[in-house]
Computed example of a mutant assay.
Amino acid sequence: MSVKTPEVRITFDNPLPVILFLLTVNLMAIAILSRGRCGLSGCITKYLLSMAVTDLLVIITAVLFNRIPAIYFPGSFLYITPACSLSIALSYASRDSSVWLTVAFTFDRFVAICYQKLKIKYCTEKMAVVVIGTVCALASLKSIPWYFMHEPMFIINKVPWYCRVKQARFTSPFWKTFDWLDRILTPCTSFLLILLLNILTVRSILAASKARRRIRAQSNGEKQSDPEIENRRKSIILLFAITGNFILLWITNVVQFGFKTFSTDYQFGSFNDPRYILQESSNMLQLLNSCTNTFIYAITQRSFRKELTDAMKYPFIVLGKIIK
């Protein structure tokens, strides 16, 4: 006699404390980076600050305005069709901005490490602002079609409710092309670009470090600390921590996309279906990528840790003064 396994859908009983913690962490990162006291160049600070802002927007649009209402407030005003469509479009815009700013930061560090002549012109605060603005503008424009991809499920008292994908998405050449381009650009192309840039950066670092050690050994005859190599090492640790974290948390999404693309049957049978678990796991890890960079800064940057510690102590210091 076979026993049917009950369907189990794992959810948090009360996710609000977790969401509030993630929002607080990102807000603290934004506040600390905006002060510019972390010992990083202005160019790097601009990229890290923009990434922190877009990560915060991902949490707000994809979690607070999308997933939480879908589970706990299904009849709220957020599910009037225009609001629902706007929430979906904003989620994709913030996601794409976050991903491609990571690519832009990786490319900036690749240029800074591998091309010293180009570094003088490209790795500047002014250029960083231009790149960040361009990336966010293009990501926002690319996400506009998502607003028009949905139609209401119900119309109650002339008010359209909920969002349902239009049938044209599966039949229209335009929507099919847009859907493919969206999935190819994010995450596949961005994922491969980050991986390629890291490989080229590592190769350049190994070659440059070997040559520099050989020159210093010939000139000094003994091993001495090299400030240039030390500064480069700190920059490399930060770069690889951020991009490595991105690769680890997005690789499941890439695998899920490939499996969905080449599978002949991708319908979910239940919440226990491995395909459903793979999809939800990839979504969870993708959203997790938007709240881990703050911890990376704290682990890899001593000045950031000091600023973070001072920020956490400040309320208690003020409270102590008030009590006295």
Rank of each mutant, 00 (worst) to 15 (best):
Y122T: 10
N220R: 15
T177R: 12
I60A: 07
T292Y: 10
Y72N: 07
L308V: 06
S209R: 14
R203A: 10
N272H: 06
R305W: 12
T171L: 12
L56E: 07
P6W: 08
Q218G: 09
N198T: 05
V165Q: 09
G75Q: 08
E228I: 13
Y276N: 14
A31W: 12
R212L: 11
N231K: 15
N245C: 15
R169A: 07
G42S: 13
K46N: 04
Y92R: 03
R233L: 08
K176G: 10
T294Q: 06
G39F: 06
G39Q: 03
L40W: 04
I296S: 05
K313F: 04
F148K: 06
A311K: 04
S282N: 09
V25T: 00
G320I: 05
A112E: 00
F259G: 01
W180L: 15
I144P: 00
L16E: 04
S143A: 13
E151N: 08
Y72E: 04
K4F: 14
L27C: 13
I32P: 01
A298M: 03
L141H: 11
R183H: 15
V130A: 04
T11Y: 09
P173Y: 14
P74E: 09
V3P: 01
S140R: 08
G133I: 14
Y162T: 01
R305C: 09
L33F: 01
G133F: 13
I194Q: 00
S143G: 04
N245D: 12
L40F: 05
R95N: 09
M284D: 08
A104F: 03
P315F: 12
I236Y: 01
R233K: 07
S41V: 06
E230S: 11
T124V: 10
C188V: 15
F65M: 14
V3E: 13
L206N: 11
A112G: 02
E307R: 10
T294M: 09
L278S: 08
T252M: 14
Y92A: 05
S143N: 09
F12A: 09
L56T: 04
S270K: 08
G269T: 14
W180N: 07
L308W: 05
P15D: 00
I323K: 10
Y314E: 07
W250Y: 15
S76P: 05
N26P: 01
P227E: 11
L90S: 00
F65K: 02
F178C: 03
L56I: 06
E280K: 13
C291I: 03
G75R: 15
Q218T: 09
G244F: 10
T177E: 10
K313P: 03
I242T: 00
T54Y: 10
V8Q: 12
T171V: 11
W100S: 00
T261V: 13
I299N: 02
Q224K: 14
I199L: 11
R233N: 11
T294N: 05
M312H: 07
N26T: 05
Y314I: 02
N220A: 13
T81W: 09
Y147Q: 05
L197C: 05
F191R: 00
K119Q: 12
E280C: 10
